[in-house]
């Protein structure tokens, strides 16, 4: 019905986005040039910190750590990467859109809660398997839940950061 006007609005937005990008480009470029050391460091720090975050997640049930802390470590790593590089690079490093991290995380957490309901137990009842699966000795639904938390924290923080940087 009012397609023309909508299209017009989109055009204007695109134009304004473009203008914003143009305005930011020199700044971004400058930032990259001045902190070459930092950006290189961030590139190498990223996998290290990610490994640390997974470790924190996995050991969280017994030692300090867990989904939140792991998620925050990973999110910090990606944020550092995003700040030292640019939003586009962070997107590439994340591989998936951060929104999907949220979706998958929520789905894992919700699914971990739902699973026991299939067995006739209340929502979020912990189920522990006896058989090891891959390198996890005791696969259990709280761990899946915590992984969901981990992904949601990453996704949430990165959504906010990348949106902010793209703005």
């Amino acid at each position: 019905m009012n397609d023309p006007s909508a299209r017009k609005e989109e055009d204007i937005m695109k134009a304004s986005d473009g203008a914003a990008a143009a305005a930011h480009a020199p700044v971004a470029g400058k930032a990259r040039a001045t902190s070459l050391v930092l950006s290189t460091a961030a590139t190498y720090l990223l996998p290290l910190l990610l490994f640390l975050s997974v470790y924190a997640l996995a050991r969280g049930h017994n030692l300090p750590g867990g989904g939140f802390i792991g998620g925050i470590i990973a999110a910090s790593a990606f944020s550092l990467f995003a700040i030292t590089h640019d939003a586009e690079a962070a997107h590439r490093a994340l591989r998936l859109h951060p929104r999907l991290y949220i979706v998958i995380g929520l789905f894992l957490a919700g699914g971990a809660g739902l699973a026991p309901m299939v067995a006739g137990k209340p929502f979020l009842t912990a189920l522990w398997a006896d058989a090891p699966f891959l390198f996890i000795q005791e696969p259990n639904t709280p761990l899946i839940f915590d992984t969901g938390v981990y992904l949601v924290v990453i996704g949430g923080v990165m959504t906010i950061f990348i949106s902010l940087m793209e703005d």
């Binding site: 969280g60 049930h61 017994n62 030692l63 300090p64 750590g65 867990g66 989904g67 939140f68 979020l124 912990a126 522990w128 005791e138 259990n140 709280p142 761990l143 839940f145 915590d146 938390v149």
Partner: peptide, 14 residues
């Protein structure tokens, strides 16, 4: 009952 030594984390996830 919940197989975790980090009580805070067990509270949070279980």
């Amino acid at each position: 009952s919940a197989h975790g030594r980090n009580v805070v984390n067990v509270i949070l996830v279980d």
